[in-house]
Design a binder for these strands. Structure first.
Lengths: 245, 245
DNA sequence: CGATTGCTTGACGGGGCTCAATCTCCGTGG
DNA sequence: CCACGGAGATTGAGCCCCGTCAAGCAATCG
């Protein structure tokens, strides 16, 4: 069985890998490893660190749900097609984030997830899980806690997005990326913007020109620094101030 | 034990009550009733049809989570206070809707819920549940399905709100109320607007003047009719068209 | 080295926010 | 019974943020 909580071996900041103990899927992994009487069972359910290419699909909307995923390294975006046929980015996933929980209930995925860069993913096949027993009960408990957390986080994110102006939305977005990065044991102050400006704009409900303009304004304010796709958070308190009011 | 799926006895449209079989909590109620070896246990966990006054709090933000609720009749609003101290309406609950799932993970409620009118609520004390056994396993399964559904619904609602203009947001809001009403066995075409214009504005991220103006414009278009706090959906297809584009 | 893709910057117009006045209901009390 | 007051809703006037259109710039790739 693979050792959890090993340290990431990579130094390149753009290829940072989350440690298992900081990963959102870890509570489930623990349960599976613990609950499986035979280590071979664990292998059936968990497939760790599968590599993925930039642009590759993790799963598509309307595809039947079969597994939960966690980002080990790299990043992903979720794209949803609304009733009028327009694509919209509904989320970004960083190392340690859980992907696919939205399909548990309906057994069908409600959006498409695509790799934004070369990434690695851990996969847990819930289909293969034993349907009862003590292990299953613990697994369910962990699932409930994770889903509940997702519900309240979504509420917060939505709240802040809906009635804020462009500066507030973008500042909140940067701080959110930063906090999530820090929570997973990666740098809070140096973020890799693997997504395009258009992706950010779509996610925030803005025009991509507005995102561009706001980024440069933040740079002029001395709040951030951008070169290419690396964003440096220079003045987090300042960004925080922008989101208020 | 109380019989489920009885028909509502009330005729007054403003006091419509959801039947148990149409209620969002019913899957859980079923499990509890079924799983309890002693009917007395069921009474401990479920408290049906508790009356509540207009303005009364169901629970407050930061209060420890202890129970799930379902609206039997009437309506509620959820209010969240963001970091800058401003109140914001984050949701409305109609008969049949489930309240409180957002607190399951953290064991703490993340917003405040207040009755918008004279209402009745069913309460399920999850604290009192047996911690294991077959009944518990089924309960957990039902919880997972409900939470998963809430996650994907939230995604859809957020998506539609974030990047639509005032007419689109309000049309989507009306259609959403209408659909939820219909889903629970109530009228799709005659809706009681128990919340204030300010509440709607806060929820949709608009100014209350904009909500007012848009309502009257919809009335001029022949899409809806409003008198006092009763909204008639005259032309649902027309409203649908507004949300598209 | 041209072509493509993505990002930035400018000019302009419109949708919605703000401020403010008026109107409609209610509930209360004289 | 009506007068009064207050809360909520409606309507108008003006301004600003941001979406749209368009051009120019930077980076990547065949």
């Amino acid at each position: 069985m693979e050792t959890c909580c090993q340290q990431p071996e990579v130094d390149d900041p753009s290829r940072q890998e989350v440690a298992c103990c900081d990963c959102g899927l870890d509570p489930l992994c623990q349960v599976v490893d613990y609950g499986a009487s035979d280590p071979a069972d664990s292998k059936l359910v968990l497939r760790r660190r599968q590599p993925m290419q930039r642009g590759e699909l993790l799963f598509s909307a309307k595809q039947p749900f079969s597994a939960l995923f966690a980002v080990k390294s790299g990043s992903f975006k979720a794209i949803s097609v609304d009733l009028s046929g327009k694509e919209r980015v509904v989320g970004f996933y960083l190392p340690g984030d859980l992907i696919g929980a939205e399909g548990i209930a309906s057994r069908v995925h409600s959006f498409t997830v695509r790799a934004l860069e070369e990434s690695a993913i851990c996969r847990m096949d819930l289909d293969q899980m034993p349907q009862s027993g003590r292990g299953n009960e613990m697994l369910q408990g962990a699932l409930i806690r994770m889903l509940g957390e997702e519900v309240s986080i979504n509420h917060l994110v939505t709240s802040s997005l809906i009635q804020q102006n462009a500066e507030q939305r973008l500042a909140a977005f940067i701080l959110n990326l930063s906090a999530r990065s820090g929570m997973r044991g990666l740098s809070q102050y140096q973020l890799g913007l693997s997504m395009s400006r258009s992706d950010i704009a779509s996610y925030l409900g803005l025009a991509r020109e507005t995102v561009s303009r706001t980024f440069t304004r933040f740079q002029n304010y001395g709040l951030i620094g951008i070169s290419k796709h690396v964003l440096k958070v220079v003045n987090p308190e300042g960004l925080q101030k922008v989101t208020l009011v």
